[in-house]
Design a protein around this nucleic acid. Sequence first.
DNA 1: ATAACATATGAACAGATATTCATATGAGGT
DNA 2: ACCTCATATGAATATCTGTTCATATGTTAT
Lengths: 127, 127
Amino acid sequence: MKKQLMVCDCNVIHEDVVNEVKHKLPNIDELEKTANLFKVLADNTRFKIITTLLTHEMCVCDLSYLLNMSQSLVSHQLRKLRKARLVKYRREGKVVYYSLDDEHIEKIIQYGIDHIRESGESFETRE
Amino acid sequence: MKKQLMVCDCNVIHEDVVNEVKHKLPNIDELEKTANLFKVLADNTRFKIITTLLTHEMCVCDLSYLLNMSQSLVSHQLRKLRKARLVKYRREGKVVYYSLDDEHIEKIIQYGIDHIRESGESFETRE
DNA sequence: ATAACATATGAACAGATATTCATATGAGGT
DNA sequence: ACCTCATATGAATATCTGTTCATATGTTAT
């Protein structure tokens, strides 16, 4: 008895490969969390903040001024970065200083940039 | 004469730091392209496809069946992955086989997963 | 306690994008 | 030529999310 093809409207070509890969699939929870990590990195505003923090710890106001963004926007995005544990912070009186959480982030960004550079001119940002 | 604070509604706290970092900012083009790379990785559907291809080259139908997604959806997302040069493909008759484009992708994903694992239980996906 | 300032956050809006549906393309076989 | 099957894609919809505005919180100083 053949398995039902739920939403797949074509025939399976390589049952052997599919069955092999099926067991190696990462668990759905880890997978979604990792995708979510990239989701947080994926926004231009947040990515600017992250690359800025790559160089130096900074307070919200510094970021807001340097990147020419409203304080509210920076703060909102920093919250998301905090939640995803991409940045950590320390308070000093009224001022809150943000910095990158760990070295994974730096490496991820570095490989990202490497990929872009090697893809070269031909890389298309838009359709 | 002080610089105008365009959208920043607070006072600059650390002019020295800001001026130092200002020069080290990566060029806007590369920055946006890299953020876009992560944008392509950031979607659950595409990330599932990517991690599946991590194990084995596959055709559209295999992916559609294995991940229980409509052929149309898989094809649409593969297109975006192609455009971002995350995957490459080869045609064999009617069948098109997809695989990861280069080893940067694998490393980026690996560091992503590492980060999630070390963040541990406390990592929050949603609010 | 009150004022001033840095930061955080809720709500609403605007713009982006994933998904579906219908259909087109393109290759192999009859 | 036609038909079938794998894949691609355009258009429309539905959902998500970045941004702004207004306001709240929390800390320092008077």
